[in-house]
Amino acid sequence: MDVFMKGLSKAKEGVVAAAEKTKQGVAEAAGKTKEGVLYVGSKTKEGVVHGVATVAEKTKEQVTNVGGAVVTGVTAVAQKTVEGAGSIAAATGFVKKDQLGKNEEGAPQEGILEDMPVDPDNEAYEMPSEEGYQDYEPEA
């Protein structure tokens, strides 16, 4: 019985440690998101679009440190934060509304985080759909 109880105690310690790591990862992701939003706020009209992409990228980098179902929630929060940063930029006159959601080359930025393969159960990952990809044929 002692062996059984000791095993359960060790398992509990492992769960607590994993929860603490997840909590730490979420806190880091939130900190990076805040950094990115402050970065966007300090940019001029020309830099705002690039700044919004930076927020998304920093958040995406930190999301990889967070495991399990938390990833889905962090990704949703990050996307809403990026959308909010863009709205703030438009409201303050840093950028025109028609410039939001495009990178410096004018290509749409939507789907940055949505296409990231995420499995809350950590069982399997699927690649994003290939609808947006084109076949590449090298020139002879």
Rank of each mutant, 00 (worst) to 15 (best):
M1Q: 00
V3S: 04
M5N: 02
G7R: 15
G7K: 10
G7C: 15
L8E: 00
S9H: 09
K10P: 00
K10L: 14
K10Y: 08
A11W: 15
A11E: 00
E13G: 04
G14H: 15
V15D: 00
V16M: 15
A19H: 05
A19E: 00
A19M: 05
K21G: 00
K21T: 05
K23A: 04
K23C: 13
A27L: 13
A27W: 10
E28L: 07
A29D: 00
A30R: 02
G31D: 07
G31E: 04
K32G: 01
K32R: 10
T33K: 00
K34P: 00
E35F: 14
E35H: 07
G36E: 03
V37S: 01
V37W: 15
L38T: 03
V40T: 01
V40L: 14
S42Y: 10
S42Q: 10
K45W: 15
K45N: 02
G47E: 04
V48M: 14
T54V: 15
T54H: 12
V55I: 13
E57N: 08
K60E: 01
K60M: 15
E61K: 08
T64G: 08
N65C: 09
N65T: 08
N65H: 05
V66P: 01
G68C: 04
G68E: 12
G68P: 07
V70C: 04
V71C: 04
T72A: 12
G73T: 14
T75K: 13
T75I: 06
A78I: 12
A78W: 15
A78Q: 03
Q79M: 09
T81N: 02
T81E: 02
E83Y: 10
E83W: 11
A89T: 07
A89F: 11
K96G: 13
K96E: 11
K96Y: 14
K97C: 12
D98N: 08
Q99E: 06
L100D: 07
K102C: 05
N103P: 11
E105C: 03
G106C: 09
A107T: 08
A107P: 06
P108L: 09
P108R: 09
L113I: 12
L113G: 11
L113P: 10
E114M: 03
E114N: 12
E114V: 12
D115R: 05
D115H: 13
D115T: 10
P117H: 05
V118D: 10
V118W: 05
V118P: 13
P120Q: 11
P120K: 07
P120R: 12
N122K: 11
E123M: 12
A124W: 12
A124E: 13
Y125N: 06
E126T: 07
M127V: 08
P128T: 06
E130D: 10
Y133V: 05
Q134V: 04
Y136C: 09
E139R: 08
E139A: 08
